Simulated scan of single mutants.
Amino acid sequence: MTGLVASIKAVFKLPNDDPRKTLAVALVLCLACSMVVSATAVSLRPLQERKAALALKSEIVEVAGLDSGELDLDEAFAQIETRLVDLDSGAFVEGADPLSYSYRDAAKDPAASTSLSEADPAGLIRRPDRMPVYLVRDAGQLDTIILPIYGAGLWSTMHGLLALAPDGRTVKALTFYEQRETAGLGSEVAGERWLSEWPGKVVLDASGKPVIEVAKGDVDPNAPNAEHRVDGLSGATLTSNGVTNLMRFWLGPQGYGPFLATLSGRERG
């Protein structure tokens, strides 16, 4: 250690125009800057996580239809029942805190997720074994089922929330709150106009198979399968395909399919 300090002192005693001293000064500045950036990132992480949690809570309240302005965010969110679901069985996970659960962290943990290998149309790589669901009740009866969904688009992983009617098949609302698709094209996946086409669409057929599809071009409203199809995003075929793939994955047997199939008649109202 003493020898290292002596070497550093010797370098800094060199003339200012010596390339070795210039390189040493640059290295020291780079090291100092990296330490400052790292310390700032660490100190800001809790604030960023709180802001992200609040933003997600706001999205859930909005897609639940509880953003009338009569209640503040916490009061509105308190009306929503948050549960964890075991995706393989479709059953609620008892004794776990769904509010502290992160499906993003779970997807990175081999002990809490499942490798999808080749059966991965949504581009997830690993699927969390558990996912949160949000339930809205009216006079004790189930009114809305809100499912977090995500999957690969052209440039990014798109994260959204799908709100279904108590039948588990009919869309009430959809939002994509996180995406980095091509501006003016794929980014319209989060646009109000396109999202407004989703309410009333039927995502599953009578047997429970996912049939929802983002079409290539516009949907003929008189076509026999129009209720299962949504207009494509102009100039964004791969983003449109990504939405179809993630929808069908999360509504299928590896996603919320078992959960939706086991919702009791009583729960569905």
Results as ranks from 00 to 15, higher is better:
Arg193Tyr: 14
Pro128Phe: 08
Gln141Cys: 11
Ala163Leu: 02
Leu124Asp: 11
Tyr150Gln: 14
Ile149Cys: 01
Leu142Phe: 08
Met158Asn: 09
Ala183Ser: 14
Leu195Gly: 04
Pro148His: 04
His159Asn: 15
Val189Cys: 13
Ala163Arg: 05
Arg126Ser: 07
Thr144Asp: 03
Ile146Gly: 02
Asp143Pro: 00
Val133Ala: 08
Ile145Leu: 14
Tyr177Val: 04
Asp138Glu: 15
Tyr134Gly: 05
Leu135Ala: 07
Gly160Phe: 02
Trp194Thr: 10
Ile125Val: 14
Met158Ser: 06
Ala139Met: 05
Arg180Leu: 13
Leu161Thr: 10
Gly160Gln: 00
Ala122Glu: 04
Pro166Gln: 04
Trp194Pro: 08
Tyr134Met: 04
Arg193Asp: 14
Ala183Thr: 14
Leu185Tyr: 14
Ile146Glu: 09
Arg193Ala: 15
Leu185Asn: 01
Thr170Cys: 08
Val133Gln: 06
Leu162Asn: 09
Glu192Ile: 10
Gly160Ala: 02
Ser196Leu: 11
Leu162Pro: 11
Tyr177Arg: 13
Val133Met: 02
Asp167Asn: 14
Glu192Asp: 15
Gln141His: 14
Asp120Arg: 01
Ser196Met: 05
Pro132Asn: 15
Gly184Arg: 04
Gly184Phe: 07
Gly153Cys: 11
Leu195Phe: 03
Val171Lys: 06
Gly191Glu: 08
Arg169Val: 10
Ala152Gly: 12
Gly153Phe: 08
Met131Glu: 09
Glu178Asn: 14
Thr175Tyr: 00
Lys172Pro: 04
Ile125Asp: 12
Asp120Val: 01
Ile125Pro: 00
Gly151Tyr: 02
Gly123Asp: 04
Pro132Met: 09
Ser156Asn: 11
Tyr150Ile: 01
Lys172Thr: 08
Leu154Gly: 03
Leu185Ile: 01
Ile145Trp: 04
Gly160Met: 03
Gly191Arg: 03
Leu185Phe: 12
Ser196Ile: 00
Ala152Lys: 15
Ile146Arg: 03
Leu124Pro: 07
Leu147Asp: 05
Ala152Cys: 00
Arg137Trp: 01
Ala122Thr: 03
Leu185Thr: 07
Leu147Asn: 04
Ala163Glu: 01
Asp120Ile: 08
Gly140Glu: 05
Asp167Ala: 12
Met158His: 05
Gly140Ile: 04
Leu195Trp: 04
Trp155Ile: 07
Leu142Cys: 09
Arg127Ser: 12
Ala183Leu: 15
Leu124Val: 02
Gly160Cys: 07
Gly168Ile: 05
Lys172Glu: 07
Arg127Trp: 01
Pro128Arg: 10
Trp155Thr: 11
Trp155Lys: 13
Ser187Phe: 09
Val136Met: 02
Asp138Val: 09
Asp167Pro: 11
Thr144Phe: 08
Arg137Leu: 10
Ala190Gln: 13
Gly184Cys: 11
Val189Trp: 00
Ala139Ile: 03
Glu188Ser: 07
